[in-house]
Amino acid sequence: MVYIMKTKVEVPMDNNTDGNKYVIDAQNIYKKIGKKDVLKGVNLLVNYGEIHVLAGHNGAGKTTFFRILIGLLRYDSGTLRVLGLDPYKSRQEVSKRLGYVPEDSSPYERLTGYENLKVYALIYSDGNEEIAERYVERGIKISGLKDKDLSRKAGEYSNGMKKRLLIARALMHSPKLVLLDEPTNGLDVFSAYNIRKLIKSMASSGTTFLISTHNMSEAEMLASKVSFIAHGLVIYTGSVKSAIEEFASVNLEEAFIKAVGERE
């Protein structure tokens, strides 16, 4: 089914920065998994309200870095603040104000779309039914899914619908920071377009996004700021325009290739 979102989602956001200068402040983050040095001193600053795209090739360390930002993995050395807190030590506190959609994830397939939203709404609202219901309503708006789809099991959804449901589930509690790992990977043109439209719409309401992708065209379309990550290091951070100018390229893809080439 081809579905193009026509409405802009209006979600009121709290732009309070809690006195922190950056949403993400990562300094010299190292991480070894098994015998491999996956991150070799990552530095990254993400400002409030921006769509920051972390662009890199497969195996560059994007997913590992995301998992560290959420507090699922411990970093070996460096300093890290996400929303002003160390995510590994304060995973629960950070996760209350954060939304996350991993690259390779799925909704609960035996649950309906509505139930998927409801479970997470109850978790984010700490069991408060009233607040949870508000979150669900917001989630339904964000997902753009129709009533008949919401009452179907998520296992029957197309990949695009599943992704929209996952993003809605990550956004319905109005997080200050949203991490999307390869959000359009494996989606058809229409689904990918809808997801990008949704991200832009939410960002305009004040949500900060950190999005990882290996698709440079997508990075160019979405980013207010872009960082190149290669072989466990962030090798460049700036606007899309300045990246293209700095590496004397015609587009971001060429800029990325030149940036990585310079390092090798």
Binding site: K96, P102, I123, Y124
Partner: peptide
Amino acid sequence: ERKTIETLLATPAS
């Protein structure tokens, strides 16, 4: 295996 654990662990659920 059903790829739902990572999002669950990223919620405030202890």
